[in-house]
């Protein structure tokens, strides 16, 4: 019990960074998903190929490699400094999951029944109106359950930013462990509990999104 009292306040210091990275990654990740998803459905073949390349590269390699590459290799290659480890971490997570989620955006839009597009055309809607008023609202509800699952995946992946020196929960856990190895079981168990507590509202949200997407739809 004493050990917990000792460890707890140290780990709390990392919560802020973990949540900041998580929120920034969620916002950027969803944004990236919609941008890439729409680009892959564009009429412009060059745009389509470029986004296709982006999606395949980020889905085909692992997140930890992308993170290290953005953090260590990119500044050398182009002389670009991303500016901070915060943005390297957020960019890696959001580009990675954005690529995965763009496939959900794309397939959801494609799976809206063809008759809907035809009906909208018959009503003399422009291409933009068709997407905004008819296709997109129906596609979004199909995206919701999968989008919910990615919230938890993104939370789990934020633990990687400790590897590039950001002071998140795991970072403080590692410091405690290296100062006193015998504390390791308490420390890491508590770190896991911290992540689980942050995950609970996300799990709840995922369930909500799932039921929202089912609401009012006839089961097939």
């Amino acid at each position: 019990m004493d050990a917990i009292v000792e460890v707890f306040p140290v780990l709390v210091k990392g919560v802020e960074i973990t949540i900041k990275v998580l929120l920034a990654s969620i916002v950027l990740g969803y944004l990236m998903a919609f941008i890439a998803g729409f680009c892959r459905l564009s009429n412009n073949i060059i745009l389509r190929k470029i986004t296709g390349f982006y999606v395949e590269v980020f889905r085909g390699t692992s997140l930890i490699v992308q993170l290290f590459w953005l953090y260590y290799a990119l500044p050398i290659l182009f002389g670009i400094e991303i500016g901070s480890d915060f943005w390297a971490g957020v960019l890696a997570i959001s580009l990675n999951y954005g690529a995965y989620m763009s496939e959900i955006v794309r397939s959801s839009i494609l799976s809206v029944a063809k008759g809907q597009t035809e009906a909208a055309t018959a009503l003399n809607m422009s291409r933009f109106q068709r997407m905004r008023l008819v296709i997109f609202p129906q596609a979004v509800r199909m995206m919701l359950p999968e989008f919910g699952n990615y919230l938890i995946l993104m939370l789990k992946s934020t633990s990687l930013v400790s590897l590039i020196g950001m002071t998140d929960i795991l970072y403080y856990g590692d410091i405690l462990r290296s100062s006193d190895l015998s504390q390791a079981p308490t420390v890491y168990l508590l770190v896991l509990v911290f992540y689980f507590i942050i995950a609970l509202p996300l799990i709840w949200l995922t369930k909500k999104m799932e039921s929202a997407s089912k609401k009012g739809v006839a089961s097939q």
Binding site: D174, L181, L192
Partner: peptide, 14 residues
């Protein structure tokens, strides 16, 4: 719903 990285550390160090 907890990070596999932390689970790895738990098994290896703790």
């Amino acid at each position: 719903s907890t990070p596999p990285l932390v689970q790895l550390f738990f098994i290896y160090y703790a």
